[in-house]
């Protein structure tokens, strides 16, 4: 089963990258959401899918005696999901604000490109001889 999921991860990730490269920032967000899912799935699969029993210790027992699913990747993914959500939300709000400010969501639009600011060259003199 892990092999199938590996292929799925590759597919979802490729789709995510294709969307993120599109230059349309709304699609970028879709790609971002897909990529989060792909990565979570990757971590989950890397922890193996050998057992389908949840890692819960039954009442009356003190240690997990029967084989169960790997708890460690689950803990990693749980926070990753929430953080991914927070980032996605922030990204959306950022888009909203960007659109309000610039009126475009095309990444290649010159209104969106950072204009290289002419930074000050104060204090650096063109080559000339100073005092020794």
């Amino acid at each position: 089963m892990e092999g199938v999921l590996a292929l799925l991860v590759g597919l979802v990730f490729a789709a995510a990258i294709y969307l993120m490269l599109s230059g349309v920032l709304v699609r970028f967000v879709f790609g971002f959401a897909l990529a989060s899912n792909a990565v979570n799935l990757l971590i989950f699969t890397a922890g193996r899918l050998a057992h389908d029993r949840p890692p819960l210790i039954s009442v009356g027992q003190e240690v997990l005696s029967e084989p169960a699913a790997n708890a460690l990747p689950q803990a990693l993914i749980l926070t990753a999901i929430v953080i991914g959500f927070a980032m996605l939300t922030f990204l959306l709000v950022l888009l909203y604000r960007t659109y309000a400010e610039t009126g475009t969501l095309n990444a290649d639009d010159p209104r969106l490109m950072d204009e290289m600011q002419e930074d000050d060259t104060r204090g650096t003199h063109p080559p000339e001889r100073g005092a020794a």
Partner: peptide, 11 residues
């Protein structure tokens, strides 16, 4: 490029 990246992740 996307296929390449996906392939990297899968492999």
């Amino acid at each position: 490029l996307a296929l390449g990246a996906g392939w990297v992740m899968a492999s």
